[in-house]
Amino acid sequence: MSESSLLKELVDALRCLPGIGSRTAQRMAFHLLENDRRSGERLADVMGRAMRDIKHCSRCRTLTEHDTCRICANPARQPQLLCVVEHPSDVVAVEQATGYRGYYFVLGGRLSPLDGIGPEDIGLDVLEARLDEGEVQELILATNPTVEGEVTAHYISELAAKRGIPASRIAHGVPMGSELEYVDSGTLSHAFEGRRKY
């Protein structure tokens, strides 16, 4: 590495990205400085604005630069359906893959008592206030099928039950195009339990 401390700072800064080690960070920094300064400047500009302006939607807690996100601001969606997901990226995944037309609630994580993450850390007070508004008639629990995701789904289903709101859990099963031989026992047993009439 050259003596430039600014260059070293850039490499160190790039290492904050997931999956980027020191060699890749160094390659990225040299590429931007030697071959593509315009893209580098654009990246710095967008990064600066995004970090400053993107915050959490006041209704669903997904990421947006507005007070309410595009989905929450859309009156044509079905207000009686609320889908609870762990992360903003899950909203994008459900939007792209399904025809779901209800609203979302983003927890920003999942209950993980072993890591000290409790109900107050994942916005459940905001979710309770949303349920108390009385519009939601079905709560769809789309947390991940991990131990923590299941614990979170169970806890939220109890919050819904207290208010007489039915909760449903997304199905877990064999991924499309995969082979049964390579599916783990938990998924396969869920798939059998959740089999449907053909």
Binding site: P113, L114, V147, E150, V151, H154, Y155, S185, G186, S189
Partner: peptide, 24 residues
């Protein structure tokens, strides 16, 4: 290698997570 899976659900799963935290 997996020998046995305990299909825990609902409050059974929460109780088991509590047992794990206690052991930890």
């Amino acid at each position: 290698e997996e020998k046995r899976r305990f299909p825990l659900k609902a409050v059974g799963l929460v109780r088991a997570v509590y047992a794990n935290e206690l052991l930890l």
